[in-house]
Design a protein around this nucleic acid. Structure first.
Lengths: 136, 136
DNA sequence: CTTCTAGTTGACGTTAACGTTATCTTAATT
DNA sequence: AATTAAGATAACGTTAACGTCAACTAGAAG
């Protein structure tokens, strides 16, 4: 399969516009894995799977989650649960996250409304109190 | 008017379940102001206006914004613009923020979809691979 | 062989956002 | 007068998420 493409650390770094240091750090704290390092050079190589993980990490960051929170979420995707107990816990965790996200979306929408209504009031206010009243 | 209610630092802290230290810190970096401190004791007292600001700060934090970003947004609310140039800049800034927020909402919705579809696939998968195959 | 490039492993430095501790003051209680 | 409570300032400590620098290595290029 053509899925076997491997990336060097700087390829990934360039791809996502981050530093190699960041990628090493993510690996350091167990968020990425570089298996099959070249034995002689010890150079890391990443699979498409890791590339996807990195993408998720960065998305999480953009959304304001800490790396620890992101780690938990990603681990969620990759846990292969054993007992019913664990299954339940995972579903529960997913539901929690969904609720958190819904809450965040709500708050963002409120913030947005605030900014919009501020903008409108502000624009109207300026039309009335401006010295150069041009357009009605 | 009854709007003159003043809050002590620990009142606000209790109200929002944060530490007094945090409030002092927000003031330290210019996100809050405590005017009219009691001359003898130097104790801070906050107006309703500051209470609202604090609320906004905490909302921003929950949304993953840095204090600096929040400061910019709050300043937006309280700028009294002078020239047309400044007006334009403010409107522009507001629009930028709105776009950022829209983007964040989109990403959050995608993340949510991901989690939901994961949950569903996962639940189905378990129905099939479980020892107790009930529904086919 | 030397130089350059891309990577490695430490290890110390940095910033944000507070926590914590020490020392001091004022007002209220006892 | 002594204690307690609430607050103040000053300053050092802490954690996350890297940045930066030093010293080393393997392979490619001249």
């Amino acid at each position: 399969m053509t899925k076997d493409k491997l990336y060097t650390i700087s390829e990934l770094a360039a791809m996502f516009d981050i530093s190699s240091r960041s990628i090493r750090y993510y690996e350091e704290i167990g968020m990425l894995i570089s298996e099959n390092r070249e034995i002689m050079t010890k150079q890391r190589s990443y699979t498409n799977r890791e590339r996807r993980r990195l993408k998720m990490i960065l998305r999480g960051k953009k959304l304001g989650f800490s790396l620890q929170q992101i780690k938990e979420m990603i681990d969620l995707y990759e846990t292969n649960p054993e007992g019913d107990e664990e299954k339940r816990r995972i579903i529960e965790f997913a539901d929690e996250k969904i609720n958190e996200i819904n809450e965040q979306i709500l708050q963002l929408q409120m913030l947005k409304e605030d900014i919009i209504s501020y903008k409108e009031k502000y624009q109207n206010h300026n039309k009335n109190s401006s010295t150069s009243v041009k357009g009605g």
